[in-house]
Amino acid sequence: MTGANPPAIAVTGLRKSYGDTLVLDGIDLAVAEGAIFSLLGPNGAGKTTVVQILSTLIGADGGDVRVAGHDLAANPRAVRASIGVTGQYSAVDKLLTGEENLLLMADLHHLRRREGRRLAARLLERFDLTEAAKKPASTYSGGMARRLDLAMTLVGDPRVIFLDEPTTGLDPRSRRTMWRIIRDLAGNGVTIFLTTQYLEEADRLADRVALLDRGTLVAEGTPEELKRLIPGGHVALRFTDETALAGALGALGTGFLDTSDDDRLTLRVPSDGGVASLRDLLARLDAAGVEPADLAVHTPDLDDVFLTLTGDPKDGSAVR
């Protein structure tokens, strides 16, 4: 990761529209070789579109893209030869067994039969799939299918790997396994381009994070830099009637109405969530004679990042 190496992925002014809908509005990215780069954003932000363009699946409307040193528009085949893609939807052949899926990849990379068999056995072992090797992929659990998917991506020994939401829909245990695998890959010098909707995932894995919202990058930096942009969390106080809510607002002097509560009876009060500030908050409510029906402490998450950086509170369904 020295500055002398050209970036593994370099994107300038990337634009894409579907009909009248502008999906990507001038994206600039640079990913250093061997780094883990995470593109973070809610559903519909355009993350998958970026991956689809960078992995040659769809064309861009404008902008320059270089992947692994090759110009995407001029030489898509060279790009394809250098990359591996594990998409959001399992890209395994469900009618074939795990082993056959890997051998299929070995054949398509024109490996010799013996070499292919040895590689397949090694990957099955590494991804803990040896026992399931002879079973059809249709019988695999979500986590197993995702591991097989990634194992297939590795058959061609790609220098750049795109992972589109690799842990969406996985249980916590499988997610952790996936994180370990991704870290190991980067440790071997492979460049990883990862999309995710989970701030935690980007935080744990990525060297750099870019935040995508409605087709534009709203922030880019290391996880630490990004987190500094996030304000403290808040406390959500739910009341039984509007009088109590108004009383609380008066007593605390700050807070705003949580629009995701249909009854409009929940107050969000900025807070670091610490014991001292909670005690202070409750004391003030007590003094005003207001009793909340429910109290929840909310630590900073992606929601807050968007709140700060876009000034547009996403509804709960868009950001998890």
Binding site: T56, S90, D93, D149
Partner: peptide, 13 residues
Amino acid sequence: AEGIVARFRTMDI
């Protein structure tokens, strides 16, 4: 409709 064909499309085949 399967993801496998999308995978093929991103490979140099």
